[in-house]
Design a protein around this nucleic acid. Sequence first.
DNA 1: GAAACTACTTTACATATGATAAGAAATTAC
DNA 2: GTAATTTCTTATCATATGTAAAGTAGTTTC
Lengths: 187, 187
Amino acid sequence: MQTLLKHIQSIHPISKEAEKSLLEISKEVHFQKGTDVQLIGHTCKTIYFVKEGCVRIYYFKEDIDITESFEFENAFVARAESLFTGKPSLKAIQAIEDSSLIAIDSNKLFQLFDTHHDLERLFRKIIEASYVNTVNRIESLQFHTADERYLDLLKEHKDILQRVPLKYIASYLGITPVSLSRIRAHK
Amino acid sequence: MQTLLKHIQSIHPISKEAEKSLLEISKEVHFQKGTDVQLIGHTCKTIYFVKEGCVRIYYFKEDIDITESFEFENAFVARAESLFTGKPSLKAIQAIEDSSLIAIDSNKLFQLFDTHHDLERLFRKIIEASYVNTVNRIESLQFHTADERYLDLLKEHKDILQRVPLKYIASYLGITPVSLSRIRAHK
DNA sequence: GAAACTACTTTACATATGATAAGAAATTAC
DNA sequence: GTAATTTCTTATCATATGTAAAGTAGTTTC
């Protein structure tokens, strides 16, 4: 749990009481490579923090598996569209490697916001940062070529090729595995 | 200002005192069609609420004008990547029609969060909703054809063709104006 | 260790989108 | 109201990506 507290500290320091309350609604969970952390159709009631390993959010479009996002160590993961609307999610979370996650009960967390103002601020900041990331990703998808997006991804996650199968990377970039192979061959 | 308060009410009701404080840091501003509300290179310190008219966020990629987003009546607009990081923005906000906006001083707003917990919650929810929107937009850019994206946009904003020039719509969809013309011709 | 399966690459062809240029339509300026 | 400017469309050609199929390499299963 120290990893989580340390990460939080770097975003927005919170009181000892808030830390204690947060830990009370958190627990460490483990998932084997390839297994689903959360299933399609399930309403998201948990926010995860990746302590070790990596996960992806994915969904199916007409039977094709599409990776929406990856998260590695020291990042939060949740299916925002379900967590913030209360509707069942069309997406799943899957462990790409054997992973240790810290699961935070979101309903209890939202309740804590009433008594711990600093916790709400912390999570506001986390959401803001995620929002900025997605806005940047839109820019990337809107006007960068697949080629540029591939190179940008490698720059940002230097070890992603060693950790994540290319087929997941392809759909994340918005292209087919065949097209990704072609791009890689031209380097 | 009633429009703003009414909109807020529908998201997360706040106390009379919070409303009063919010109005104290807000003022109505007017922009003529085609003029910039905020300039490129300027650090974003204002959150706007569109009372009337419509605006777009845009930037230049290699001299080409690209529309990142549109906002119409009853929506908030801000350049998130600058507002939440404090860095100068590479983007501008422009009025597409003669527009009446309500300008909220973001630094003062963030200060109010300390005394008005309900205000922070309101804006947390606003950010959450924006975040969900951008996640959905990624999905759209990632695996829908330009054709599908065009039809989706028309469905969501039925009057957009009457209000927004096609060249702005084209770059928003991630395609050239020529390509958009082609898509429209095939309907 | 052989068989089965999965991930990745390569090739050939089809299609969508980009780039450029020219013309038509609409809007703005005087 | 005409001229000038901007916006939009159409046509042509080039290029990137998709689809399908076959082959290779690596991994898993028993």
